[in-house]
Deep mutational scan, measured.
Amino acid sequence: TSEDEWQCTECKKFNSPSKRYCFRCWALRKD
């Protein structure tokens, strides 16, 4: 669900929880 998505701190895109990197800008997920 969208509620589980995380928001990239670099480009603000919301990504799948299973992705460690942002799909748009490839920044590593910040915990």
Rank of each mutant, 00 (worst) to 15 (best):
residue 1 T to Q: 02
residue 1 T to R: 04
residue 1 T to K: 00
residue 1 T to S: 04
residue 1 T to I: 08
residue 1 T to G: 05
residue 1 T to L: 04
residue 2 S to F: 07
residue 2 S to H: 09
residue 2 S to P: 10
residue 2 S to N: 14
residue 2 S to T: 13
residue 2 S to C: 07
residue 3 E to K: 11
residue 3 E to Y: 04
residue 3 E to D: 08
residue 3 E to F: 03
residue 3 E to P: 08
residue 3 E to M: 05
residue 3 E to G: 06
residue 4 D to Q: 06
residue 4 D to P: 09
residue 4 D to A: 05
residue 4 D to F: 07
residue 4 D to Y: 04
residue 4 D to E: 07
residue 4 D to K: 03
residue 5 E to W: 10
residue 5 E to D: 15
residue 5 E to S: 07
residue 5 E to T: 11
residue 6 W to P: 07
residue 6 W to F: 10
residue 6 W to K: 03
residue 6 W to R: 13
residue 6 W to G: 04
residue 6 W to A: 08
residue 7 Q to G: 02
residue 7 Q to F: 10
residue 7 Q to N: 02
residue 7 Q to C: 02
residue 8 C to G: 00
residue 8 C to T: 00
residue 8 C to K: 01
residue 8 C to N: 00
residue 8 C to E: 02
residue 8 C to F: 02
residue 8 C to V: 01
residue 8 C to L: 01
residue 8 C to Q: 03
residue 8 C to S: 01
residue 9 T to F: 12
residue 9 T to A: 06
residue 9 T to S: 04
residue 9 T to V: 07
residue 9 T to I: 05
residue 9 T to W: 03
residue 9 T to G: 05
residue 9 T to E: 06
residue 10 E to L: 06
residue 10 E to G: 06
residue 10 E to W: 01
residue 10 E to Q: 12
residue 10 E to Y: 12
residue 10 E to R: 05
residue 11 C to W: 01
residue 11 C to K: 03
residue 11 C to P: 01
residue 11 C to T: 02
residue 11 C to R: 03
residue 11 C to M: 00
residue 12 K to F: 07
residue 12 K to N: 09
residue 12 K to C: 04
residue 12 K to H: 03
residue 13 K to F: 04
residue 13 K to C: 11
residue 13 K to G: 11
residue 13 K to S: 12
residue 13 K to M: 11
residue 13 K to E: 11
residue 14 F to P: 09
residue 14 F to Q: 11
residue 14 F to R: 07
residue 14 F to G: 03
residue 14 F to E: 12
residue 15 N to F: 07
residue 15 N to Q: 04
residue 15 N to I: 11
residue 15 N to C: 07
residue 15 N to Y: 05
residue 16 S to E: 10
residue 16 S to I: 00
residue 16 S to Q: 08
residue 16 S to G: 13
residue 16 S to V: 09
residue 17 P to Q: 08
residue 17 P to R: 02
residue 17 P to G: 09
residue 17 P to F: 01
residue 17 P to V: 06
residue 17 P to N: 01
residue 18 S to F: 03
residue 18 S to G: 08
residue 18 S to A: 14
residue 18 S to P: 08
residue 18 S to C: 10
residue 18 S to E: 11
residue 19 K to H: 13
residue 19 K to E: 15
residue 19 K to Y: 03
residue 19 K to G: 05
residue 19 K to Q: 15
residue 19 K to L: 09
residue 20 R to S: 14
residue 20 R to V: 13
residue 20 R to E: 15
residue 20 R to C: 07
residue 20 R to M: 12
residue 20 R to T: 15
residue 21 Y to Q: 15
residue 21 Y to W: 04
residue 21 Y to N: 15
residue 21 Y to M: 15
residue 21 Y to V: 12
residue 21 Y to F: 13
residue 21 Y to E: 14
residue 22 C to S: 00
residue 22 C to L: 00
residue 22 C to A: 00
residue 23 F to S: 11
residue 23 F to C: 12
residue 23 F to G: 10
residue 23 F to W: 13
residue 23 F to R: 04
residue 23 F to D: 13
residue 23 F to P: 06
residue 24 R to Q: 11
residue 24 R to T: 10
residue 24 R to C: 09
residue 24 R to Y: 14
residue 24 R to A: 12
residue 25 C to A: 00
residue 25 C to F: 00
residue 25 C to T: 00
residue 25 C to K: 01
residue 26 W to G: 15
residue 26 W to P: 12
residue 26 W to C: 08
residue 26 W to I: 03
residue 26 W to Q: 15
residue 26 W to H: 15
residue 26 W to S: 15
residue 26 W to N: 15
residue 26 W to K: 15
residue 26 W to E: 15
residue 27 A to G: 13
residue 27 A to H: 08
residue 27 A to S: 10
residue 27 A to N: 13
residue 27 A to Q: 10
residue 28 L to D: 13
residue 28 L to T: 14
residue 28 L to Q: 11
residue 28 L to P: 11
residue 28 L to S: 11
residue 28 L to R: 05
residue 28 L to A: 12
residue 28 L to I: 08
residue 28 L to K: 14
residue 28 L to W: 11
residue 29 R to V: 11
residue 29 R to K: 08
residue 29 R to M: 08
residue 29 R to G: 15
residue 29 R to I: 04
residue 29 R to Y: 07
residue 29 R to H: 11
residue 29 R to N: 12
residue 30 K to G: 14
residue 30 K to T: 12
residue 30 K to Y: 08
residue 30 K to R: 12
residue 30 K to E: 14
residue 30 K to L: 06
residue 30 K to Q: 15
residue 30 K to A: 14
residue 31 D to F: 03
residue 31 D to C: 03
residue 31 D to T: 07
residue 31 D to H: 05
residue 31 D to I: 06
residue 31 D to P: 14
